[in-house]
């Protein structure tokens, strides 16, 4: 037990503070672009609310992805699970306010089940997580598209408040994102499960020798990650007023969530990193969307730039790491 705590405490203190730097850099880019292009509306309160709204969908799923990557795994099925969750939610609700609770419960239960399956295949059957979750993603998408080919059902207007409602100037959904981030931060830093998560990701065999039941930790991380994907699906169903079987895949939430987690300083091999870096990575992506809109850069150069930025953002701090990377 003490070994796991040591590993958890041994998280780097002297490394580059990725999260604040990334956040400040993105913000500076945003402000400078808005001033340079004379689009001052982007700098008003409403402008910033719009900016944070762009973070929500990717942000929630990326929080979950942070956990799987921290534990040394990865989840490629999130995009497809998001589609399943969105469709299932609006299909069960069918516009009936009374069906909101059952729908939300069903979506979360299904998400947890998918996470459990992912975790079991990875931890018990010893299947590489990339392949396991790629396979589960394909299975989910196949079943989903076989039964739905378009928007199914709809969500009642009460449920749309989730995406469109506000407390004062702040949208509920943005608030939810930050509450979730805070909760996961607490879990990672203040609970035994959090310490075990870091320990398992840092050195699975070592953690097992220290008495940690690593299989359970991995399964737990996957269940939480899938729950986050389910929540993202609920958010998208609320925002789009219905779920369609392509919302997850079109959003490229699988690869983008992995990219923002790694940009945020979480080690792809596991064991190091955290949620604030991930949120900063999500903020960078939201900023890029807004900046590309302000400057009117065409779609194709935009892709080239985004690819280069992903590599450079990771390279900036990865370049100092020792040892080999594959």
């Amino acid at each position: 037990m003490s070994a796991s705590a040591d590993i958890a405490v041994a998280r780097p203190a002297r490394e580059i503070p990725v999260a604040p730097l990334l956040f400040a850099g993105s913000l500076a880019l945003y402000i400078v672009t808005a001033l340079a292009t004379g689009q001052h509306a982007y700098l008003t309160g409403e402008g910033f609310v719009g900016l944070t709204q762009r973070m929500v969908a990717l942000g929630i799923v990326a929080l979950g992805q942070t956990l799987t990557i921290l534990v040394g795994s990865i989840d490629l099925s999130v995009a497809n699970l998001i589609s399943v969750a969105a469709v299932l939610a609006s299909f069960i609700m069918k516009g009936e306010p009374a069906m909101i609770a059952p729908a939300v419960l069903a979506v979360l239960a299904l998400s947890a089940a998918v996470g459990l399956v992912n975790g079991l295949i990875i931890a018990r059957l010893d299947v590489n997580p990339l392949i396991a979750t790629l396979g589960v993603g394909l299975i989910l998408q196949g079943l989903l598209s076989a039964s739905f080919s378009n928007f199914a059902g709809s969500v009642p207007s009460a449920f749309q408040a989730f995406a469109y409602g506000r407390i004062g100037p702040l949208p509920w959904s943005v608030l939810l994102l930050f509450v979730l981030a805070f909760a996961i931060w607490l879990m990672l830093t203040r609970t035994r499960f959090g310490a075990h998560l870091y320990a398992t990701g840092g050195n699975r065999d070592g953690a097992r020798l220290a008495g940690i039941r690593t299989e359970r930790v991995i399964i737990g991380a996957h269940v939480l990650c899938s729950l986050m994907a389910g929540l993202t699906g609920l958010y998208l169903a609320s925002r789009l007023r219905a779920g369609a079987p392509w919302v997850g895949r079109d959003g490229v939430y699988d690869l983008e969530s992995i990219a923002v987690v790694v940009i945020g300083g979480t080690l792809l091999a596991g064991g190091r990193g955290g949620v604030w870096g991930t949120l900063a990575g999500v903020f960078l992506f939201a900023t890029l969307d807004a900046v590309f809109n302000m400057t009117g850069i065409d779609a194709f150069p935009k892709q080239v730039l985004r690819g280069a930025i992903v590599i450079l953002a990771v390279a900036v701090y990865a370049v100092r790491s020792r040892g080999h990377v594959a």
Binding site: A259, L268, V314
Partner: peptide, 19 residues
């Protein structure tokens, strides 16, 4: 640059497609 290959080639995927 010590960027993990999954990220390095993901960035390349985006850039090449755009290019």
């Amino acid at each position: 640059l010590k960027v993990p290959s999954i990220i390095a080639t993901l960035g390349m995927l985006l850039s090449l497609n755009g290019a």
